[in-house]
């Protein structure tokens, strides 16, 4: 009995210790952002700031090129929310079509959905840039939002399709007997039940778009239009001259939305990942 207990204690200590090592870099970043900017690297091995200050946040918030960091946050938020709404809506439509309706070419379409799931964004990065350049979409938010209205993120469609297939088919049959069309079955029966899957997709879509670095890098040319990730990268490039404290502080700020989602929507996150796949 004693041996079993000792093993249990060792298990918890080890798991806890490794867990702390895992998140130590993040803790270090948060703590560093409260240190006086000049002392971050002098006291890199210490966690607790000697003179805690919020000066870094005040300096960082001023942004650069006379654009406040708040503008970058607002930009990112607007783009991420629009992209999220479009992704959820379009993915739900396509997922219902693929999950419940019989029509010619459906298998081919589903194969293409799986293909888009395997096809990473980077591979179409330059082709898409050339195309959007032709369309005159450079330096707008269109390349980051419009494609979301067309359900081309396979993972999101797949996620919802799986969910719809898990709903009892009898619901459909009953509604059909009551005279519901395929369209009203979707709006009256499927949609209300789809909410959990929509939540999952919304969260993943928001986080992906919030973190997205490549599209802003390619498409946004004016500082006032920058998103958070692009602004941070610029901060990082400039910080040979300016202060690391402000950079750390804004990096911490940029993670807050994702951390909030992590805290309050963990159930959706875990469900989304556990039901297969996912990038990252």
């Amino acid at each position: 009995m004693a041996r079993k207990k000792r093993r249990k204690v060792i298990y918890h200590i080890l798991t806890m210790l490794c867990g702390i090592i895992m998140i130590y870099p993040l803790i270090w970043m948060v703590c560093s952002s409260f240190k006086e900017s000049g002392t971050i690297f002098l006291t890199a091995s210490e966690l607790i700031p000697r003179n805690a200050t919020i000066e870094n946040f005040i300096n960082g918030w001023q942004g650069f090129s006379k654009v406040s960091f708040g503008v970058f946050i607002k930009n990112t938020f607007v783009v991420a929310v629009i992209a999220m709404a479009l992704t959820v809506a379009s993915s739900a439509l396509v997922a219902y079509g693929l999950a419940r309706l019989r029509f010619k070419g459906k298998n081919l379409l589903f194969a293409l959905v799986l293909l888009t799931m395997m096809l990473p964004g980077e591979i179409v990065m330059i082709p898409r840039y050339l195309w959007f350049n032709k369309l005159g979409w450079i330096n707008t938010y269109l390349p980051m939002t419009v494609p979301c209205a067309f359900a081309i993120q396979g993972f999101m469609v797949y996620q919802m399709k799986n969910f719809i297939e898990g709903l009892p088919r009898e619901l459909n049959e009953a509604a059909k007997i009551d005279g519901c069309s395929y369209y009203s079955i979707f709006t009256r029966i499927i949609l209300p039940l789809l909410k959990p899957a929509m939540g999952t997709v919304a969260i993943f879509s928001f986080i992906n778009n919030w973190n997205d670095y490549m599209s802003p890098l390619l498409y946004l040319k004016n500082v006032p239009k920058y998103t958070v990730s692009l602004a941070l990268k610029l901060f990082c490039d400039q910080s040979s001259t300016s202060d690391y404290g402000a950079m750390f502080a804004m990096a911490v700020v940029s993670l807050i939305p994702v951390i909030l989602i992590f805290i309050f929507c963990q159930r959706y996150l875990v469900e989304g990942i556990s039901t297969q796949g996912l990038k990252g």
């Binding site: 379009s90 439509l93 396509v94 219902y96 079509g97 693929l98 309706l101 019989r102 029509f103 010619k104 459906k106 379409l109 293409l112 959905v113 494609p147 209205a149 067309f150 359900a151 081309i152 469609v157 069309s181 395929y182 369209y183 979707f186």
Partner: peptide
Amino acid sequence: ESTAGFVFCLPFILG
């Protein structure tokens, strides 16, 4: 049904 299926999948086809 076949038309409805096509209509629902139209966003993806276009996209």
